[in-house]
Design a binder for these strands. Structure first.
Lengths: 234, 234
DNA sequence: GGGTGATTTCTTGTCGACAATTAAAATGCA
DNA sequence: TGCATTTTAATTGTCGACAAGAAATCACCC
């Protein structure tokens, strides 16, 4: 096991341990550093993070609550699998949430929200220029998360965040295999969405969000249904 | 503290402890037996359930993940408050989820789903006849949960369940104060929704679900905005 | 040699105890 | 008496250890 990076531990504050483990594991799951199905050993993690099993377990319970790890009774927890059979439900849900949150953002946003959203967009453009797919994926999530926040409906925000996280894992598969082709068109679409929100044009925001979602869904579906057979002369 | 019901403990199976505590606390929170804001003492619960603090804590972490308890660092966890300022976001979200899940149920349901839904409807009618508001609230939740299940989108189902649970608490306030008036009209609306789903009429299902949601929202809003001042001759 | 049952090992679920932190009580002072 | 400060008490966060259960290994029998 060479991937157990040594996390140096230096006098953590009381209560910050779980948070640290939680965020660390979460990030490794979402970037596929921990692939779906990988067993998660508690003592292993405890040694790695230099703490007891108790806070590790708490972090795992929280991750399980978000559907990022699956726990079998008396057996090792595993990184949640990606159910390709139910991918269509994901597409369905994220399309709806893109639309709803973007509509609400157009209605409810305040100037400071717009600044935050624009900030993410700038970082996104930079990531595209740097050809950094991991950064692009993470920032794409932050971009839509900021829009959801601007909509100010915590229920929508929570579901959107969950979908965006799941989306990070799926997009990671996508970019890995398409050898990190860089979709500049996304940043153009993002710009359009920002403009629509700023103009408080609800219907336009809805339409652009829907088209943006359709675009992503179409590309991923195309990727998953592509024919990878090699031609063999017989 | 007289509300510490003695939960007799008899040799529980390994791993069933957390589940038991979780379901128990959850039910007490949703029925307002534990009112919003009430502090939750871990040792107290540990004594009450006859187990150590560890499984209690795990149950609390799970409940916190669902937003049913709030945890302050180094301080007692409390039963999650109901934020009346954000009630409109709840109405917004549950209306959308009623519509979406009922639409999907009309599309995707199988015969056995319909049987389950009808079963809940029968139980609901019985609860209305028995004038049992707590049962009505719980079954109303099961009814819509079953519809969401029939729609077969786990993301929608999860959000709907969360909203229905939050709804149980809000409805409980409503029924308590209106001295348990019994809305038979709900059961009629439920019957209409069942028929629309059975007929696989997506648009009708959508419309009925929306009207059903509007109806509930209107009644609750009316309740919360009613004028409770007493006339005082001066 | 293969399959079945016992044994060992390994991992999780739970426990009791201690330390850190906060809230409350008690003390001192103006 | 009222307020600030110290002391005490109470509660959480973390730890190490043990027991129950499952997987893997080994022995045994056909």
């Amino acid at each position: 096991m060479a991937d157990n990076a040594e996390d140096i531990v230096t006098e953590r504050k009381r209560g910050s341990g779980v948070k640290h483990v939680y965020e660390m594991l979460r990030d490794e799951i979402l970037t596929l550093a921990l692939p779906p199905g990988r067993p998660i050993d508690e003592v292993n993690l405890a040694e790695r993070f230099g703490m007891s099993r108790t806070p590790i377990r708490e972090a795992l319970v929280r991750l399980a609550g978000e559907g990022l790890v699956e726990t079998l009774p008396n057996r090792s927890a595993i990184v949640a699998n990606i159910d390709f059979m139910k991918l269509h439900t994901f597409f369905d849900a994220i399309t709806l949430m893109y639309r709803v949150t973007t509509r609400l953002a157009a209605e409810c946003h305040r100037p400071e929200d717009l600044e935050i959203i624009k900030g993410h967009q700038e970082r996104y453009v930079a990531a595209v220029a740097a050809r950094d797919p991991l950064a692009m994926i993470a920032i794409n999530r932050d971009f839509h998360a900021a829009i959801a926040e601007a909509g100010r409906n915590p229920y929508y925000t929570a579901l959107t965040l969950r979908l965006l996280d799941e989306g990070r894992r799926i997009l990671r598969l996508y970019y890995q295999s398409f050898d990190d082709r860089l979709p500049k068109e996304y940043s153009d679409e993002h710009a359009g969405i920002i403009a629509a929100i700023a103009a408080r044009d609800v219907e336009l925001s809805d339409r652009l969000a829907r088209e943006h979602a359709d675009q992503i869904v179409r590309q991923i579906q195309q990727f998953f249904s592509r024919d990878t057979r090699h031609e063999v002369p017989l």
